[in-house]
Amino acid sequence: MTGNVIEVEGLRKEYRGRGGKRVAAIDNLDLAVPEAGVFGFLGPNGSGKTTTIRCLLGLVRPTRGRISLVGLPVPGELHHAIRRVGAIVESPALFPTFTGRENLRSLAAIDRIGARRVEEVLGLVGLGERADDLVKKYSLGMRQRLALGATLLKDPELLILDEPANGLDPAGIRQVRALMRQLADEGRTVFVSSHILAEIEHTCDRVAILRHGRCVAQGTVREVLASAGASEAMLVKIDDLDAGVAALHRAGFGAERLDGHVRVAIAPTEADRVTRALAEGQQWVTDLRPEERSLEDLFLELTADDAPPPARGHEEVGA
């Protein structure tokens, strides 16, 4: 294996739209997911995340492109690869007239996985006490946890999770986040698609951002944020915000109040000019720092409809 558990090259998937017109759900997508860690796969609705995941799992036939999963080509060797992969695609589809335990046992039987592992997994996802209830009586969150449990049955080295926090309450989300981190710390790879960006930012080691079926950024979270360039603004904390804004305007700076700070439109390298201007206006700085961009800011910027189209053959950041 090359060190990448998922490799996608030039992946394209077309669907026939209205009037027979072909629409590309994924367009020339390159993706490399290294072994171990949590990899966030981000993109707005309709960006091609789930279609990509379906291609990885052989559920959808790509129009063209090359895919490998745990070092094996897909779809040719998928039946070998799938033994080492646990996956949830979209909403968890379980057998509603089975109990939670029967669901897991039924899936485990396909790969000759024993009852002890089923019990372990039920405990791991916190469903031990409700394991004998029918799944149709489960809440969405419980179904999501059971589906997560199903992915763990095989003790997989790669987990592919499509929006695993959907339908979970805050405690459930935290549990899933902790579980993903724990699995990654054990040396597994967790490939997770999500639109809850705060989750990704704090859980993932690496991310890829998708727009209109193309990858617009890829790398570690830090690399991706750095690739978008530093923010051209500083945040200043002073006692009298209005007086500070007035002083900065007199000195010719663009300044505004923002969340208990004054935001000054200036490069961080020119911070000394800001302190001088404020001092001249009898305003004393208690905190001065460059404005940080969150992953969410970057995500919205990169995936906005009026954002410039990504270059073909996108280069991975920091690769």
Binding site: L78, I82, A87, V89, E90, A93, L94, D111
Partner: peptide, 14 residues
């Protein structure tokens, strides 16, 4: 209808 075809195929893709 239940979408369990997808679930089964993630266990037996043949």
């Amino acid at each position: 209808r239940a979408g369990t075809v997808t679930t089964m195929l993630t266990w037996e893709p043949r």
